[in-house]
C-alpha cells in the first residue's frame, strides 16, 4: 500500500507591518485634509486680528501634524488587538526584543527634526511675523511691529473687579467699555491697580498679565468688525468670574464717534484722573492695608 505523499510548504505569514502602514497612510491621508479644510476654520481663537489668525494657523498646523501620530498609535493598538490576539489556552512568551540601531537612529532624528522645525517656525511667527502673537511682552517688548508709531495706544487697567481703558491719544479719557477701529494696529499696555489680573481678549488673541507696577505691552492688528469677549484669566477674588465684558471692533468712523461721546460724558471727571502713566501702584489709603 502506498501512502500518498503531500508536500507541505512554509506557512503564509501575513505582512502585518505593511498592512498597518497602509491603513495608517489611508487614514492619515483622509484626516489631514479634513483637519485643515473642515476643522481648521473653526479652531480658536478666530481671525478677528492678525495675531488671532496666526494662533489659529498654529493650532491647525499642530493638529494636522498630530493626526498621523495619533492615527499610528491607534492603528497599531487596534490592529494588535485583532491580529495578535492569543487564541487557545497556551500563552507562550514572544520572541525577545532586541535593539535596532538604524530604527532607533531614524526615530531620534525624525522626532528631533519635527521638534526643531516647530521651534524654528514658532519662534519666527512669535517674533517676526505676529509680533508676540498677542501675548504680553513686558515693558520692553522684543517683537515690535515696524508701524509702532501709528499704533492706537490703549491702556488696560485691571482692578477688583472690572476693566477700564485709557486712551492717551484722546485726552487720556478713561472708559469702562472697549471699542477698537477695524484694520488698525493696536498697542495694549496692560497693568493693574491692586492685585494680579490677566487681560484675556479671546477673539483678539490677546492674553497679557495685569500686574501692579508693570507695563505689559501686547500688539494686535484688528481685521473685520465684530464682538469679542474680555475675561480675567487670573484668580483675583470674589468677583473674578464676573470680570467679563464684551468689546467691539467697529469702523474707524464709529470708533471716532464712540470715543468722542466718551470724552464728552467723562469730561466732568477728567480733571480728577492722574496724568497718564505707564503703571500704577496701589496707593496707600487712610484705612486700607
Amino acid at each position: 500500500m502506498t501512502i500518498p505523499h503531500t508536500e507541505v510548504g512554509p506557512a503564509r505569514v501575513p505582512r502585518h507591518w505593511l498592512r498597518m502602514v497602509v491603513i495608517w497612510a489611508v487614514l492619515s491621508a483622509v484626516a489631514i485634509p479634513l483637519i485643515v479644510l473642515v476643522l481648521g476654520p473653526h479652531l480658536p481663537p478666530g481671525r478677528m486680528t492678525s495675531e488671532a489668525g496666526s494662533q489659529r494657523d498654529a493650532n491647525t498646523l499642530m493638529t494636522a501634524l498630530l493626526a498621523p501620530i495619533v492615527v499610528s498609535v491607534l492603528v497599531f493598538f487596534l490592529y494588535s488587538i485583532v491580529a495578535f490576539r492569543e487564541r487557545g489556552a497556551a500563552i507562550v512568551d514572544g520572541p525577545p526584543l532586541r535593539g535596532h540601531v538604524p530604527m532607533q537612529t531614524a526615530w531620534v532624528l525624525f522626532t528631533s527634526v519635527i521638534v526643531v522645525a516647530l521651534a524654528a517656525w514658532g519662534s519666527y511667527t512669535l517674533i517676526v511675523s505676529s509680533h508676540g502673537a498677542g501675548g504680553g511682552q513686558g515693558p520692553d517688548p522684543v517683537a515690535v511691529p515696524s508701524h509702532r508709531s501709528q499704533d492706537l495706544v490703549v491702556q488696560v487697567i485691571g482692578q477688583q473687579w472690572n476693566w477700564t481703558y485709557r486712551f492717551p491719544a484722546y485726552q487720556d479719557v478713561e472708559t469702562d467699555h472697549l471699542e477698537l477701529p477695524n484694520h488698525s494696529p493696536i498697542e495694549f499696555h496692560v497693568t493693574s491697580l491692586d492685585v494680579t489680573h490677566s487681560f484675556w481678549a479671546y477673539q483678539l488673541g490677546v492674553k497679557a498679565d495685569a500686574v501692579p507696577g508693570v507695563d505689559n505691552v501686547a500688539f494686535v492688528h484688528t481685521r473685520d468688525d465684530g464682538n469679542f469677549n474680555i475675561r480675567c484669566a487670573e484668580l483675583c477674588g470674589l468677583w473674578h468670574g464676573h470680570m467679563f465684558q464684551t468689546g467691539n471692533v467697529v469702523t474707524p468712523v464709529a470708533f471716532k464717534s464712540w470715543i468722542s461721546s466718551e470724552q464728552k460724558a467723562e469730561a466732568p471727571n477728567l480733571r480728577y484722573l492722574p496724568p497718564f502713566g505707564r503703571t500704577y501702584f496701589p496707593a496707600p489709603f487712610r484705612r486700607a492695608g
Binding site: I157, Q159, T164, E174, D176, L193, D194, E266, P268, N269, Y272, L273, P274, P282, A283, F285, R286, R287, A288
Partner: peptide, 11 residues
C-alpha cells in the same frame, strides 16, 4: 471717606 484707588469711579 476713604478715597478711590481709581478716580474713574468718581464719575
Amino acid at each position: 471717606a476713604t478715597g478711590l484707588r481709581n478716580p474713574f469711579w468718581g464719575g
